[in-house]
Design a protein around this nucleic acid. Structure first.
Length: 277
DNA sequence: CACGAGACCTGTTCGC
DNA sequence: TGCGAACAGGTCTCGT
């Protein structure tokens, strides 16, 4: 479930409390319980368990798809990868299948990292930059301007779909929002980035921001058994709609594989413009 | 530099 | 109904 809007939805719930009253600001860590070793990337388990005891949550931030739970003085960074999820519940709640890490707070609450596929990772570090340094621009930041985006696009002779999902190029886009943004910008996923005009770069930047903000507004997308109560899936234009008809022109939505990822687009609305000469 | 394949994992859905 | 194949919100590493 986790692209930028889904992670932002979780961040917001941890900071402000969702309808489940899941805010954790101000809570003090009693102890942590690591249920699957590989979930903790760094440091080693012993150091982690010792050092996190007594630390207090002061805020919860997000950078791209990373959740940054700011403790005093360290940071607990989480990446949900394909199937990770976070819950806040009373100590009395039963452990669930696929729970990988539990942070027990004083006062009766606990934070649980659950992840069926075990791809998710948690880092406990003093400086978040140790983990986040290689990330590209944050698409929802003021600094993500058309000028910046166009300049970066021009440097790559790569296809738009994999490039937009490259976290070093742009941080936070995943398979769903990339397909939806390319549809909104009327650009074929195989378009070579360096061939875009400034106008096309502007359209694409606006499409990316629009789609991400709509995702955040709808609390993300919920699909299949990985559910968090979002509703963005109800307004998908192309993602997961291969064979169905385009809402704009009625042409059947195509599904191809690009960079090992299912890629959905409308062949009519998003024609592939071959390079002149 | 750009790209494909394979790893890492479990669960659900599809096709015969 | 059953059973294996295909596929899933992500990222990393290796070989070409």
């Amino acid at each position: 479930m986790p692209e930028l809007p889904e992670v932002e939805t979780i961040r917001s719930a941890l900071e402000n409390g969702g309808r489940e009253g899941s805010a954790i600001i101000g809570l003090r860590v009693d102890y942590a319980e690591l249920l699957w070793q590989r979930t903790l990337a760094v440091p080693d388990e012993a150091a982690f368990l010792t050092r996190i005891h007594g630390q207090v949550v002061c805020r919860v931030q997000r950078r791209a798809k990373y959740l940054d739970i700011c403790l005093e003085p360290d940071h607990l960074l989480m990446h949900l990868r394909m199937s990770g999820d976070v819950r806040v519940e009373p100590h009395s709640a039963a452990q669930q299948k696929h729970d990988r890490l539990v942070i027990w707070f004083e006062g009766g609450q606990k934070l649980v990292f659950n992840d069926p596929r075990k791809f998710g990772r948690v880092w406990f570090v003093q400086d978040p930059d140790e983990v986040l340094l290689g990330l590209g621009p944050e698409p929802l930041a003021e600094s993500f301007t058309t000028e910046l985006f166009f300049a970066r696009l021009r440097k790559h002779n790569r296809r738009l779909k994999p490039l937009l999902m490259d976290q070093a190029f742009l941080a936070g886009m995943g398979n769903i929002y990339t397909d939806e943004a390319l549809f909104k910008a009327k650009l074929h996923p195989l378009t070579i980035a360096s061939t875009l005009s400034v106008e096309e770069a502007e359209d694409l930047r606006i499409a990316i921001v629009t789609v991400l903000l709509e995702g955040v507004r709808r609390n993300g997308a919920s699909i299949d058994w990985v559910y968090r109560g979002g509703s963005f899936q109800n307004v998908f234009q192309v993602y997961g709609r291969g064979g169905e008809f385009c809402n704009i022109c009625g042409t059947p939505i195509a599904r191809i594989v690009v960079g090992q990822r299912g890629t959905h687009f409308c062949p009519q609305c998003q024609p592939l413009k071959l390079p002149e000469n």
